[in-house]
Amino acid sequence: MTSHIPSMTLPRFVFEAPAASILLPVALGTAIGYSTRPKRTKATYATLKNPPGNPPAWVFGPTWTGLYAMMGYSAYRAWNIGMSSMNPHTVELAKHGATLYTIQLGLNLIWMPLFFGMGKPIAASVDIVALTSVTGYLAYIWGQVDATSGWLLAPYLAWLGFANYLCHGAGYLNNWDFSGKVGTFKRQ
Results as ranks from 00 to 15, higher is better:
M1L: 07
H4Y: 15
L10T: 06
L10D: 08
E16G: 10
A17M: 10
L23M: 12
L23G: 11
P25I: 06
A27S: 15
I32V: 15
Y34D: 07
S35C: 08
S35H: 03
R37E: 14
K39P: 00
K39M: 02
R40Y: 02
K42F: 11
Y45V: 01
A46M: 14
T47S: 14
T47N: 10
L48C: 04
N50R: 15
N50Q: 15
P51A: 01
G53P: 01
G53L: 01
P55C: 03
W58L: 06
G72M: 05
G72R: 02
S74L: 13
S74K: 13
R77D: 10
I81H: 14
H89G: 09
H89S: 15
T90Y: 13
A94Q: 06
A94V: 06
H96V: 00
G97C: 11
G97R: 04
T102I: 07
T102R: 08
L105R: 12
G106C: 12
L107V: 07
L109N: 07
F116T: 04
K120F: 07
A124W: 00
V126W: 01
I128Y: 03
I128H: 05
L131C: 01
L131M: 07
L131V: 06
V134M: 09
W142N: 13
G150P: 05
W151G: 00
L152M: 14
L152S: 02
L153H: 10
L153P: 09
L160G: 03
N164C: 11
N164T: 08
G169I: 04
G171P: 00
N174F: 00
G180V: 08
V182N: 03
T184P: 05
